[in-house]
Amino acid sequence: MDIALFQPEIAGNVGTSLRTAACFGVAAHIIEPCGFPFSLQALKRAGMDYAEQAEIHRHANWDMFDDWRRSRQKKLILFTTKGATPLPDFTFTPDDILLFGAESSGVPDHVHDAADARVMIPMLANFRSLNVAVSAGIALAEALRQTKGFPA
């Protein structure tokens, strides 16, 4: 199981997501460009003292990330407010990559089209979306629960 952040804009959200990935022993992919100067020092300033323990993969752009994941035959599960499948109804596999879009804009249509599945986290009506780091934590916990992938 991996998580991936598409062109994240807020260092604090990246730091929180990387901390979650480190705590659960999953890889984290950052698909650049970022909306801030990406460095371990910037993440530490954002309060992410787990950066050295996280397995971080940086991809210079979407095409490089997509080529990487296709070469490893990993399914891409996009979390989106436009998702067709509610999270409780989706079945994960251990090799899935959970993808989360940019805070202000999500992902463009070509990324939606590349996804093997689109999943939404159900919430009350009249709310636009959850924070991306919160969404990543919720989704990862459910995916690991289903696949029995929690660390011992």
Results as ranks from 00 to 15, higher is better:
A21W: 03
A21Q: 07
F24G: 07
A27Q: 12
I30Q: 08
E32D: 06
P33Y: 05
G35N: 06
G35V: 03
F38P: 09
S39C: 11
Q41I: 08
A42Q: 14
R45D: 05
R45A: 12
A46Q: 08
M48Y: 04
A51H: 10
A54D: 05
E55Q: 14
I56W: 03
I56C: 03
R58D: 02
H59Q: 05
N61C: 08
N61Y: 00
M64H: 11
W68D: 13
R70L: 12
R72L: 15
K75H: 12
T80R: 10
T80E: 05
T81L: 09
G83W: 09
L87T: 06
D89T: 06
F92G: 02
D95A: 15
D96I: 03
L99Q: 09
F100A: 09
F100M: 04
G101A: 01
A102Q: 02
E103W: 01
E103P: 02
E103C: 13
S104Q: 12
D109G: 10
V111S: 05
D113P: 01
D113T: 13
A115S: 07
D116Y: 05
D116K: 07
A117C: 11
M120I: 06
M120S: 12
I121S: 12
M123P: 01
A125F: 03
F127K: 15
F127Q: 13
L130S: 09
